[in-house]
Design a binder for these strands. Sequence first.
DNA 1: ATTCCGTAGCGCGAGTAATAACCAAAACGC
DNA 2: GCGTTTTGGTTATTACTCGCGCTACGGAAT
Lengths: 146, 146
Amino acid sequence: MVITRATEYAIRAILYMSRQPKGEIVYKRDICEAQDITPAFLTKILQPLIKEGIVGSQRGVGGGFFLAKNPADITLLDIIKTQEGPVYLNQCLVKEGNCNREFFCPVHGAWKKIRADFMQLLDKYDFASLAADQNTKLPVQSATDS
Amino acid sequence: MVITRATEYAIRAILYMSRQPKGEIVYKRDICEAQDITPAFLTKILQPLIKEGIVGSQRGVGGGFFLAKNPADITLLDIIKTQEGPVYLNQCLVKEGNCNREFFCPVHGAWKKIRADFMQLLDKYDFASLAADQNTKLPVQSATDS
DNA sequence: ATTCCGTAGCGCGAGTAATAACCAAAACGC
DNA sequence: GCGTTTTGGTTATTACTCGCGCTACGGAAT
């Protein structure tokens, strides 16, 4: 019951971009260095984010990636959904009719509620706040390496 | 991001036992039939529950399993923890010092909070209530097969 | 001796986490 | 304009881990 590494990296990458001036293009290389991600893997991770309209990309010389939305409008839930698909928690909730016990199984209803509450929990954290938190911890930019 | 089948089955098994008279021994075979679980797998699943003191077992002729605690004192979180270990959500939270970004990573704090809230969410559901829910759905016992 | 649970370990299959190779587009130099 | 360089886009492959279930043998109770 742990998020995948791809999700972890995606969150880091978005966080990194959130700290840049709005619309500023950042190099893949810079994200990788700052956040300890291999370039090839980062490419793959960013694709769904681009499709989702959260990240924009620019090819060619001087190209790179940038945030296509306001950090305040991006939440942890958004990122998790692009990487892992919808949050389900329980197999029975994956598809309607997937579980033939639905009629009488009381846990079914419980899971539905838990899932909804959990998603709401994740949706509370937006990247503007997260980036702000980081700024209070790290007033000096030069200490970003790990 | 889905719970394992073992957890699913464990919950079903506990639910089944919660509906029996307190302390009554049930056969493995009966649990398996009622809840669609293979006997060998159920054996494995019940072990951690026994170690945790949630389920009791009786060997020999006429032996079987029974609830060692009151259904009202067993929550979904208890079962999940026995099957999947502590709930972590994020690799960084698995072990203190596991994540060298802890100092400045703002997501770290967010995950800690989310995790605590999530666990509290799961801890709200006890098996006395769940079993009661089932009784309202299923007043007649003979309809329990799937 | 029989009937049950306890424990260890095996094996298939699916999913993770990368890596590699090749393709496409944009900008620059000439 | 044209080709080269610099970037991202896409697909395939791989090593590895883990979920899931099965098998086999051991141990306790009656």
